[in-house]
């Protein structure tokens, strides 16, 4: 029987209440969906003295469009993201990823904030947020600060969120004529990725690629792959360019061999999946472009 070591439990009623609890109890962890933290506590990989439950912070459960940003509250559950028509329209990469994150029952509990703060190197939403150039809003005793996703990620299981702070929101910039896609290869339903890839593109008015970001999950690289993006910049999307970008992304990846597969297989996936998500993201961007033209 796996039972966590003893701890004290407090349920926060507001974000400020949660911050006060974190301040009062230095050896504490915040729990949202709990589907990463509780298993770690069962295995004694985490052993906080206090657990601060933020499931009552409904103020952090929202998806709101504000100007050129989509604001997503940290307590937004995976199921909510998966079922959001606004997310599907603006950031289909998130819908793609949510379909393959864990299983429908786990998705009822897990949250975007929890996934990002857990910062597992094989976690899917981190890649989505990086390629969408999202910003993380972190609140602490001194107020709010906003960091880019590259600043947010400090390495495996480490983020910019300090012990006395909480991730409250993720902000996604909305770009015109844009498309995005995510694809993951997993051994079985609900597993972590063997490797996954995500891409986001936005097109200029003449149909050339204005901005592009490519990211890989579980491939030993947590930044966007700028060297692969460089071959696409300013050009019209073509299959030849996708193949070239895939080759470069695979070379830039640094996967490790484990029970999910050997290095050469993972590199092969990085190559193939990069091509696929670029193809898909560009097709979606063109679709948006046509729809906009028709509407406008």
């Amino acid at each position: 029987m796996q039972i966590p070591a003893p701890f004290d439990y407090a349920r926060a009623t507001t974000v400020n209440d949660a911050l006060a609890l974190l301040e009062r109890h230095p050896d504490s962890r915040v729990v949202a969906g709990g589907h990463s933290l509780l298993p770690m506590m069962k295995l004694r990989l985490a052993r906080p003295e206090w657990l601060i439950d933020i499931n009552d912070l409904y103020e952090l459960d929202f998806i709101l469009r504000e100007g050129d940003y989509l604001r997503v509250g940290a307590m937004t559950r995976h199921t909510t993201l998966l079922e959001s028509p606004e997310i599907a329209r603006l950031f289909p990469i998130i819908t793609d990823a949510e379909r393959v994150i864990a299983d429908p029952i786990v998705r009822n509990r897990g949250t975007i904030g929890g996934s990002l703060c857990q910062a597992d190197p094989a976690e899917d939403l981190s890649t989505c947020c990086v390629v969408l150039r999202a910003e993380a809003v972190i609140r602490g005793p001194g107020g709010e600060r906003t960091v880019s996703m590259s600043e947010f990620h400090r390495g495996p299981y480490e983020t910019a969120v300090a012990q006395n702070e909480i991730l409250v929101e993720v902000r996604f910039p909305i770009l015109p004529r844009s498309g995005s896609a995510y694809e993951k290869v997993e051994r079985r339903v609900g597993d972590w990725a063997v490797v996954a890839a995500g891409a986001a593109v936005s097109l200029a008015e003449d149909g050339t690629i204005d901005d592009v970001a490519i990211g890989l999950t579980a491939a030993g690289i947590d930044r966007t792959i700028t060297e692969a993006e460089a071959v696409l910049h300013g050009k019209k999307p073509t299959e030849g360019l996708f193949i070239e970008a895939g080759r470069i992304a695979a070379a830039a990846s640094d996967p490790i061999a484990d029970q999910r597969g050997p290095v050469d297989y993972k590199r092969h996936l990085a190559d193939e999946l990069t091509r696929r998500v670029l193809r898909h993201a560009c097709a979606r961007a063109l679709e948006v472009r046509h729809t906009t033209t028709q509407e406008g």
Binding site: Y9, G34, L38, D53, R109
Partner: peptide, 11 residues
């Protein structure tokens, strides 16, 4: 539906 092995009774 939730998996009750990964939810605390307190939650």
């Amino acid at each position: 539906p939730v998996k009750s092995c990964t939810v605390l009774a307190a939650m």
